[in-house]
């Protein structure tokens, strides 16, 4: 069972408080993603859960038991590191078997489990190789294999895909999601990439400077961000923010509209501006429009928008999809 609860957890390095008091509940079987810009404390938070760092104050419960003082080796968690952290002097087989060897599992059982894991991860042909002879994706799989043979209470992933190239990243993302579907084990996944967060998570925890900015399902965060930080962090391209007079019309300090919620036309609309750079992706086109009296806005048009650099265009926001924020950056109901 992998229910994890953080109660008033704080972490300071010397005088610097990295994580102010934080509470979080992670249900059994959930796929939780910690996301935030670099330096937001997400990796530190994961290491606190792993036991690789001490909490400064507060409590960490695993399955209802206080695990705050339990050493990492006894917490029943498995971790996949950003650098994979494979043991370079051991074969793939020995790497995957290492946790079992530490748990004094007998050799026959060890081999059976290693081979089962290798089968799931398509590593059967590579069992006798050294990590140095594997590609990045294969190494990643070995790291995952090492984690699954332990049958842990929960998996911890620390930016596991950031060292892979873009195509491989998409593949591994799917594989990890499938793994979660089949194992139904709690997974905590740290990333700075909001796309990974959106595509994989049951629950996203957005962190900003050690604080939880918002917790919710991907679509909740997308639809109703509770503050400007989450609004700007989730979604790609980024949400457009408009301040001043135009925001005032909606009774807010700042308003935000996602690029996909702006309608483009040539013959009339709320705002008017000049088209700047147009980025053609084929399925979509991102247009950077300099709107008179407002500034630069990004607009997402379906397909190939027939507009070029320097053209005049009209833009209309979807009134239902305008997010309003007060001067502290909090969303207005």
């Amino acid at each position: 069972m992998g229910k994890i609860a953080l109660k008033h957890v704080t972490k300071s390095f010397g005088a610097t408080e990295v994580i102010p008091p934080l509470d979080l509940d992670i249900e059994d079987g959930e796929f939780v993603v910690f996301v935030g810009p670099s330096g937001c404390g997400k990796s530190t938070l994961l290491r606190l859960i792993a036991g690789l760092e001490d909490v400064t104050s507060g409590m960490i419960e695993i399955d209802g038991n206080d695990a705050t003082k339990v050493p990492p080796s006894k917490r029943g968690l498995a971790m996949v590191f950003q650098s994979y952290a494979l043991y370079p002097h051991m074969s793939v087989r020995k790497n995957i078997a290492f946790p079992l060897r530490m748990a004094k599992v007998d050799e026959a059982e060890r081999n059976r489990k290693v081979e089962a894991a290798a089968d799931i991860l398509n590593l059967t042909d590579y069992l006798e190789r050294r990590p140095g002879q594997l590609s990045g994706g294969q190494r990643q799989r070995v790291a995952i294999g090492r984690a699954i043979v332990r049958e842990p209470e929960a998996f911890l992933f620390d930016e596991p895909l950031s060292n892979l190239d873009a195509a491989l990243r998409v593949n591994m993302r799917l594989e990890i999601s499938e793994l979660h579907q089949s194992l139904k084990t709690t997974m905590i996944y740290v990333t700075h990439d909001q796309v990974e967060a959106m595509t994989m998570a049951d629950k996203i925890v957005v962190l900003n400077a050690g604080r939880i900015a918002q917790v919710g399902s991907p679509l909740e965060l997308y639809r109703s961000p509770q503050n400007i930080f989450v609004a700007g962090f989730i979604g790609s391209p980024k949400m457009n923010f408009i301040e001043g007079e135009e925001a005032g019309k909606h009774g807010a300090h700042t308003i935000g509209v996602r690029p996909e919620h702006l309608a483009l036309s040539t013959d009339g609309g709320t705002w008017e501006g000049t088209v700047g750079v147009a980025e053609h992706l084929g399925s979509d086109t991102f247009l950077h429009v300099h709107v008179d009296g407002i500034g630069a806005l990004t607009v997402r048009a379906q397909g190939e928008a027939g507009l070029n650099h320097g053209d005049r265009a009209h833009i209309t926001p979807d009134p239902e999809r305008i997010h309003r924020f007060d001067s502290d950056g909090l969303a207005l109901a």
């Binding site: 390095f13 036991g51 690789l52 760092e53 001490d54 050493p71 990492p72």
Partner: peptide, 8 residues
């Protein structure tokens, strides 16, 4: 960057 345990 370490725990009390490992520092001891």
């Amino acid at each position: 960057m370490a725990t009390q345990h490992s520092r001891t």
